Simulated assay, not measured.
Amino acid sequence: MPVTILITRPEPEAGRFAARLHAMCGPEVDVLCAPVMRIELCGELPPLAGGEVLIFTSRHGVAGFCHQTTTRDFTCYAVGEATAQAARAQGLTPITCGGDAAALLDRIAKDGTTGPFLHLRGAHVAADLTGALQAAGHDATDAVVYDQQAQDMGEAARRVLAGEGPVILPLMSPRSARLVFSQTDHIHAPLFVAAISRNTAQAVPDGTAQDLSIAERPDAEAMAHAVHDLVKKAKRLEGRKRAQ
């Protein structure tokens, strides 16, 4: 049975990630995009005085902010390189951090930046950056500029999970993990999960995955390599089955 990579990220990230994995894993691996969320820009920015230090933890935060204002003359921090690239494309000049909330907070502390901080975020977040900054004595607020609306991943994805062939499942957040497993009650396929973080891995129900690995870094490049490694493991499993 062919190995299938099941991508549940929102579009357009799902398509970009699928193209990267096609290039890495080759044409003999099937890639199915079945998003469990869609992104909708929403909310309103607070009045901007011009001295705010912006914090972006996703491309969507950049998009949501730039959709509402043409002002670009801000100091800003981007959690990782993909978010920083999105900010540069919009005319912002971001300071790139190490890929997760802890690294971002550490960079702010090392730089001695005092704010006031404004975190442009989604309706659902994995880490309370604003609370952490406030706890450190900073003036910090946040603004919801997009929502991650849940959506059904579709019958094609459920058929793959109920099938015989190995499935590689990259999971980019604890919420996406919860949504995936809430939408299927029968996983028969040998399941290999690549989680972007330990928190995401903990959202995978016990006993569901035959193999669960955590990416070396919380970014798309490290996730792609984790998926590639799992594809090789799944192929070895299939090879042993055919040899019996």
Rank of each mutant, 00 (worst) to 15 (best):
C76I: 05
G80C: 05
L104Y: 00
R88F: 05
T70I: 02
G122F: 09
P116S: 07
F65T: 01
L105Y: 04
T96L: 02
A102C: 10
L118Y: 03
D73P: 00
V79S: 02
C76K: 07
A102N: 13
T71M: 08
G122Q: 09
A101G: 13
R107I: 05
A87V: 04
H119E: 11
F117E: 05
A101T: 10
A89M: 07
T96Q: 12
L120M: 14
G112H: 05
I108T: 03
T114P: 00
L118D: 07
D106L: 10
Q85F: 00
D106C: 11
C66E: 01
L120R: 01
T113Q: 14
I108F: 03
A103S: 15
T114E: 14
F74I: 06
Y77F: 15
A89S: 12
F74Y: 15
G115A: 14
A101N: 10
Q90W: 01
A103Y: 02
T69Q: 07
D106T: 13
A103T: 10
R107M: 11
L120K: 05
C66S: 09
T75P: 00
G80W: 06
D106G: 13
L104V: 01
R107D: 13
T114W: 00
A86N: 05
G91V: 04
R107C: 12
G99L: 03
L92W: 02
H119V: 07
H119A: 08
P94M: 07
G98E: 14
A101H: 03
Q85N: 09
F117M: 10
L104D: 01
A86P: 02
T75C: 13
E81M: 09
P116K: 08
F74H: 09
A86H: 03
R121A: 09
L104W: 00
A84M: 05
A101D: 09
L120I: 15
C76A: 13
A84N: 06
T113C: 14
E81A: 15
D111A: 14
Q85W: 00
C66N: 00
F65E: 01
R72G: 10
A86E: 07
A87N: 03
A103G: 13
G112D: 06
D100I: 07
I108P: 02
G122A: 11
T83E: 10
G115Y: 04
T113E: 15
C76R: 07
